[in-house]
Write a protein that binds this DNA or RNA. Structure first.
Lengths: 139, 139
DNA sequence: TAAAAATTGTTTGTGTACAAATAGACTGTG
DNA sequence: CACAGTCTATTTGTACACAAACAATTTTTA
């Protein structure tokens, strides 16, 4: 292949996305030091649902069973989420946000919006919309 | 705030990107089971440069000092990269790809291109270009 | 030149992320 | 009813990713 040396790392979608995600996470943790993006996502979803089993919550937040377990454990450890065995299905763990969890969620929502906004700040409004549309097709 | 409940997780740039990255990594490891995306990035860059210090390589591949160390250690462990202390600066570790590392790189380049292509396959050519332009602004 | 500042690499600790294996519990079908 | 398959949660192991602290070495600069 005569073009075997023309692989530009910096032009690969994976590499570029890794950098964008890094920047996003940096913005997130500067605006919301209380929680990680993943923890916040789980809390958001649980507040939205009211309650869910652990696996269910994982599915809805795109987290692996092992990953969601760790995330939920940490949220429980901080008193933001309550876990109770479900009588009608002994396999399941029913998760609910605690009052504390709900308060924190409400406190952080506006900050979270700011995180998204700041992440997209190098783009115009139209470009941001464009980007979201395109990314959605890849998700 | 009357809009405090209108935080749609699925519409946030961070959430969507996490999902896209997940998909990309899945494609990568199905096409290139030999290396992780990060390891491949480091190998690519090192082959391109011929040689580099560890920190330098980290900077050029957007990896933290602790991260690049782990990645390089694993590449060294597999005989793909050689590390030698630099006489003229005793702090530095000079990294070079081994012949084996170069061979593997050349063998995987076309697959790597396929990874990018497959990741972008839900988009048209024009859309892909558009996306890359937009992401580049956020990187 | 001597002290301050910066750089390189290492280590430790925390937090995703996924694969694979396991145990216990449910569901469906024969 | 039994049992095969499915589902939930846990555990273990590997691999990023970053913060913070450290030692050893340059480099600056006063």
């Amino acid at each position: 292949m005569e073009d075997s040396d023309s692989y530009i790392l910096e032009s690969q979608i994976g590499f570029v996305m890794r950098r964008v995600v890094q920047r996003h996470i940096a913005i997130f943790s500067s605006l919301i030091p209380d929680l990680t993006p993943t923890q916040f996502a789980a809390l958001v979803k649980l507040c939205e649902l009211g309650q869910a089993s652990q696996n269910e919550l994982g599915r809805l937040t795109s987290m692996d069973v092992a990953t969601i377990k760790g995330v939920v454990d940490r949220l429980r450890g901080r008193g933001l989420v309550l876990a109770e065995p479900l009588a009608s299905d002994k396999r399941r763990l029913t998760l609910t946000p605690t009052p504390q969890g709900k308060v924190l969620f409400r406190k952080l929502v506006s900050r979270a919006r700011e995180v998204s906004q700041q992440t997209l700040s190098p783009l115009s409004e139209a470009e941001s919309q464009q980007l979201m549309v395109l990314l959605r097709k890849l998700g």
